[in-house]
Design a binder for these strands. Structure first.
Length: 331
DNA sequence: CAGAAGGAGGATGACGCGAG
DNA sequence: CTCGCGTCATCCTCCTTCTG
């Protein structure tokens, strides 16, 4: 058969994403093996069809976001390792709109509602934590005898001040009172520029010292040690948060600190300035995905300051989009 | 035995964009 | 303005092993 037309957009995936997709496919294959062992699936020689059937089986047990990831992984499988029956695979993962398909979607929603009663994975991440609770968490970490307790407290404090994503500390550098960060999530025009510069001159000396010593700590772990540092700190915060705030359904993590930073940024700055601080190309992102400003209203304004260059970069990205999408608005 | 480290496995959030 | 898409980053649990 000829290669089916399955994409409407151009692919821009990185090698990391492709190897990630391979792992997802491996997971689907394992599920197919389970189905076969349980007698719930006939023996199917075509690997791609096996994977698609496993997908169809898992679809009602995961959220739409996860199902979408599974579909992306299967499309990558079809493109990198085409099979004889890929047309059938496409029919399974991307059915034609029809009356029966619409019924199927309704049933899918109902089964998902049934299956997804508890928060799973990243859903348990709190998008806001009060300063009082951060203090409680910090004190609890202080009582921990874990080697990661010190790094965890520094990491949280440094993130509340600067808003960096956890992965961004690896390549961040302090230049006087400016933090220079290589923006993550920078492919597909998602970051305003390659780096962003966060001014920390308004922070007091002890806060700046925490950022500096945390960066030293990150350096001391080196490129290869970053993962173990991150794993250790994240797991410790996970454990301590659950001991400290029993009964909640969402718990603070390192990314929660970025949310809190975003809320204070929104309460302090304009949308363009917030995007510059967070590394976003679009001013809409902070509004859509991050904690609302009302959480931070009445609190101290943010110490961190966006750089003029980054603000310009966000404006340019914004203008470039407007030129293409709304030409009639031009004078 | 409790707490912690390490690793494997599984899931969802957060990005910008284009279509409707 | 909303939603789905392709992509990249983060979250979590479970299990085993180590250590005091």
């Amino acid at each position: 058969m000829s290669a089916p037309e399955m994409r409407t957009t151009q692919l821009t995936q990185t090698r990391e994403t492709q190897s990630f997709y391979k792992r997802v496919v491996a997971r689907l294959e394992r599920h197919a093996a389970k189905l076969l062992a349980a007698g719930d699936m006939a023996e199917i020689p075509d690997r791609n069809v096996r994977v698609a059937i496993a997908y169809a089986c898992l679809e009602p047990t995961v959220t739409e976001a996860t199902a979408r990831l599974y579909r992306a992984a299967i499309l990558h499988l079809i493109e990198s390792e085409p099979g004889e029956r890929d047309w059938d695979v496409l029919k399974i993962i991307d059915p034609e709109p029809s009356a029966s398909e619409s019924d199927r979607q309704d049933e899918l929603r109902a089964r998902r509602a049934q299956n997804l009663q508890t928060l799973r994975g990243a859903q348990q991440k709190a998008k806001w934590l009060s300063m009082a609770d951060w203090t409680r968490l910090g004190e609890a970490l202080g009582r921990s005898r874990s080697n990661w307790a010190g790094p965890a407290r520094h990491w949280i404090t440094a993130t509340l001040l600067s808003g960096l994503r956890p992965c961004e500390w690896r390549r961040a550098e302090l230049d006087g009172a400016s933090l220079v960060v290589v923006n993550a999530k920078a492919t597909n025009g998602r970051a305003h520029s390659a780096t962003r510069t966060i001014g920390l001159a308004k922070c007091d000396r002890t806060e700046l010292a925490v950022v500096a010593s945390f960066l030293e700590l990150v350096r001391s772990y080196g490129e290869d040690g970053y993962k173990s540092l991150y794993d250790g700190v994240r797991d410790l915060i996970c454990d301590v948060a659950r001991e400290t705030f029993p009964g909640r359904d969402r718990y603070p993590s390192l990314y929660t600190a970025r949310h809190c930073f975003a809320a204070r940024a929104k309460a302090t700055y304009s949308k363009v300035e917030v995007a510059a601080l967070m590394g976003h190309a679009s001013t809409a992102t902070a509004g859509r995905s991050y904690a609302p400003a009302r959480h931070a209203r009445g609190g101290r304004p943010l110490e961190a300051e966006p750089s003029a260059n980054d603000i310009d970069a966000v404006r340019r990205a914004q203008n470039a989009r407007n030129l293409f999408s709304e030409p009639k608005d031009m004078p």
